[in-house]
């Protein structure tokens, strides 16, 4: 999984360096001089009147790029195929929500491909389904949506007070734990301070720490 993630990083490694040069060509059509043929115009045509020809054009421009992103991240042909299907379906379904305020068409398609890819990878790695891409990158469809206010789950407090456990230790063990953990003394120093043999100190420490861990462990 590490290499999958670093693959994504290196794939886009050059992007920071390119940030400056990105702004001005954003709305300039790259493929054709005909403005009606820009990605943005195609996307708006799909959104406004379900333009099949415009959708075919977007499909042929982006599907191979989407497939390649899928192969890079999942190394799995079936999942990459699914990614093309899901990303292009989202393009079709959400095209009516696109407008130029949302940035360039290629950036819009990139973000929704990234999001579908996140969800596919999460399923592939069997990660908990707590959060989906749409929770993490909400700007794709529904920025500033009204949140429903409801009662949160009850707060359940489980008490684990290590200080009070410490007080429950027998005095000789407590003295040793105090020297080592509170005064930060070495075993030798602590044995000298307490005027006990080193062996005795070590066994009391082992017993004391063992008891504390047992007490904490039942609470943790």
């Amino acid at each position: 999984m590490e290499d999958v993630v670093s693959g994504a990083g290196s794939m886009l490694m050059g992007s920071l360096a390119k940030t400056k040069s990105v702004k001005q060509p954003a709305s300039v059509p790259r493929v054709s001089n005909d403005v009606s043929d820009s990605d943005e115009q195609l996307l708006i045509a799909v959104g406004n009147h379900q333009d099949r020809a415009a959708f075919n054009a977007l499909f042929s421009r982006f599907s191979n790029k989407i497939y390649a992103m899928g192969m890079k991240l999942t190394r799995n042909e079936q999942l990459s195929h699914d990614l093309v299907q899901e990303a292009m379906l989202t393009v079709w379904q959400k095209a009516p929500l696109y407008d130029l305020d949302r940035g360039t068409a290629q950036s819009w398609i990139f973000t929704l491909t990234r999001n579908r890819c996140f969800d596919i990878l999460r399923k592939m790695k069997r990660q908990p389904a707590t959060v989906s891409a749409d929770d993490i990158w909400p700007q794709e469809g529904d920025i500033d949506s009204q949140l429903v206010h409801e009662e949160a789950g009850t707060m359940e407090v489980e008490v684990s007070k290590i200080e009070s456990f410490y007080g429950q230790l027998p005095a000789p063990q407590r003295a040793v734990v105090e020297q080592i953990y509170i005064h930060d003394r070495t075993h030798e120093e602590a044995a000298a301070v307490l005027e006990i043999p080193l062996g005795t100190l070590k066994s009391r420490l082992r017993l004391g720490v063992g008891k504390l861990r047992q007490m904490v462990g039942t609470e943790v």
């Binding site: 920071l16 390119k18 390649a68 042909e77 195929h81 940035g103 360039t104 398609i109």
Partner: peptide, 21 residues
């Protein structure tokens, strides 16, 4: 983030081979 997304999409289209599935 929106600038970085634009940059990432540029890089995606520029660097990705046109692998036909």
């Amino acid at each position: 983030i929106s600038e970085l997304e634009e940059a990432a999409s540029e890089e995606w289209l520029r660097s990705t081979p046109d692998t036909r599935a």
